[in-house]
Amino acid sequence: MIQSSDSIRIKYFSLRRCFTYVSLILAIVMTYWATVAVEFSATKLFEGLPYMKDFLSRMWPPDTKILPRVLTDTLLTIQLAWVSTIIAAVISLPIGFIAASNICESVWLRRVTIFFLNADRAIDSLILALFFVSAVGLGPFPGTLALAVHSVGMLGKLFADSIESIDPGPVEALRSAGAGKLSTIRWAVWPQVAPHFISYFLFRFELNVRVAVVLGLVGAGGIGFLLTQYMRLFQYQKVCTVILVILVLVMTVDYFSSKLRRSVL
């Protein structure tokens, strides 16, 4: 009895060990293969150094004359991020409740909703931006649409998760007192989830500011669009101004957003 169980254990261990070695070798081979595929070359990188230096030196000093224009477009980027996050939050609110198992009794409806949320998150906002640019033309509007649609995936999921993790006690109390579904959501669920919702909203806004910059690159308005224009014209000192402003923008938004988030939670 003891002997047989021992021999099984030894066999199991050796099998496991075999598996570990094979995976390790496989990982090394794959990494090598991928490195070759991306044409990684240390010599090329080394040879590129002078050009990088040249590029950087041509960026300096930043051109401050264009600052008013840059700031106007920065404002547009912030507005784009804000409007898209608001739209996403408004859409995500009911979706979050539908996707939460402690609110929605229909398993079927919940599964379909969660599937759409997952699919939505899987589609990058850059792809959505390309789609909306071709649908409604260049400018901040397609960028807003792209960000709004993409943000629903994340906000809806986070809203649903925070609804599911509430203390069920108050819900039970409301139900016992004869309260209807809507009153129960209003007084037992909402007070518990609202601070989290606000925090997630601000976090998504923070992300959207950064993504909005990138979306400008495909023509969806804002400061990113300005950046591509100066790049195409090889106006590196102007490029430098834009990059510095983007840096300040992202850092400022991060700072205030995380401060606000800490104060609501």
Partner: peptide
């Protein structure tokens, strides 16, 4: 009326 061991109040209200 129902009274619970854990009170079941909404803490933030």
């Amino acid at each position: 009326g129902f009274i619970f061991q854990q009170f079941n109040l909404v803490k933030s209200l």
